[in-house]
Design a protein around this nucleic acid. Structure first.
Length: 270
DNA sequence: AAAGACACCTGTCCGC
DNA sequence: TGCGGACAGGTGTCTT
């Protein structure tokens, strides 16, 4: 899936087509997602879609009668297609609009979700415990440094903890730690403030750059228009275990941290 | 409370 | 060409 940049690219891709339009229907072809799609998603039918926003990797489709919460899991993809377009394998949801456009969710692995919230969506149980957005001022050096104190877990696992900061998934955690010269195995609580001063802006730049380039296309992520994301060409360590470091030509090491593949350079990252 | 393991799925790729 | 096994962008839940 989509890490934060891919979700944001999806949001930017769909919103011009559907924002301000009235939702004609929500068609559930296959309700088997991470949680069964609830009947309450039909509450939005007949109402105007006021905004498409994002919190963490959740897309929030706010109407004047509640909010749809959409998550893409590992393999979810969104496309905007003309009404009545035939649906195929793993097409789970069609949200049809009054302008003849349909927002279609395809998700082979079914780790994605579509839920409904009728109240203040920020208080929803999936959202209320989340850490700050990485591209806001709430995510800053002092904050991350303080949160890290006393933590024995690896800095990479720490960065990927949604209660610490949202949106830093496996690709960008690997990339940011490489650029910051930090060994991903190092205990988060034992890293100096000077090093967090370097790391925080790098995380922001890495994510922002990935959004600008349309995200990272690995196997199957595409932008809503079907074009690939171009950040894959910028990856320096992710997916390159055993290959040579682009900076020092040392052979990159691949290990597992928190059951996620972790690639780093033992020369450049200490 | 914190850290780690596990589970949920299908598709793809690699070695035999 | 087929088959088994490992692995993949996430994250809630359970166990230590």
């Amino acid at each position: 899936m989509p890490e934060l940049p891919e979700v944001e690219v999806s949001r930017l891709g769909i919103s011009p087509h559907i924002e301000g339009r009235t939702i004609k229907s929500v068609k559930v072809h296959d309700k088997r997602l991470r949680w069964p799609v609830p009947e309450t998603v039909h509450q939005v039918e007949g109402h105007v879609l006021r905004s498409v926003s994002r919190r963490s990797k959740y897309l929030l489709l706010q109407t004047d009668n509640g909010c749809l919460i959409l998550h893409l899991g590992m393999s979810g993809k969104l496309r905007v297609v003309p009404a009545e377009t035939t649906h195929y394998k793993h097409d789970h949801i069609d949200i049809e609009f009054d302008n003849g456009q349909t927002l279609r969710l395809n998700d082979p692995r079914r780790f994605g979700a579509l839920l409904y919230s009728d109240g203040d969506v920020s208080g929803h149980e999936l959202l209320s415990q989340l850490g700050p957005e990485p591209l806001t001022d709430a995510f800053n050096i002092d904050y991350l440094f303080e949160r890290s104190r006393g933590r024995s877990q690896s800095v990479k696992t720490f960065l990927m903890d949604n209660k610490v900061v949202v949106g830093v998934g496996n690709i960008y955690a690997n990339e940011a730690l490489f650029k910051a010269g930090i060994n991903p195995k190092r205990a988060a609580g034992k890293i100096s403030k000077v090093r967090y001063q370097k790391l925080v802006p790098i995380i922001k730049e890495t994510l922002a750059s990935a959004i600008e380039l349309g995200g990272t296309t690995l196997k199957d992520f595409t932008q809503v228009d079907g074009n690939p994301g171009y950040f894959a060409q910028k990856l320096q360590v992710y997916g390159r275990g055993g290959k040579l470091c682009m900076v020092c030509s040392n052979r990159l090491k691949e290990i597992r941290l928190g059951q996620r593949s972790t690639v780093y350079c033992t020369q450049c990252q200490r």
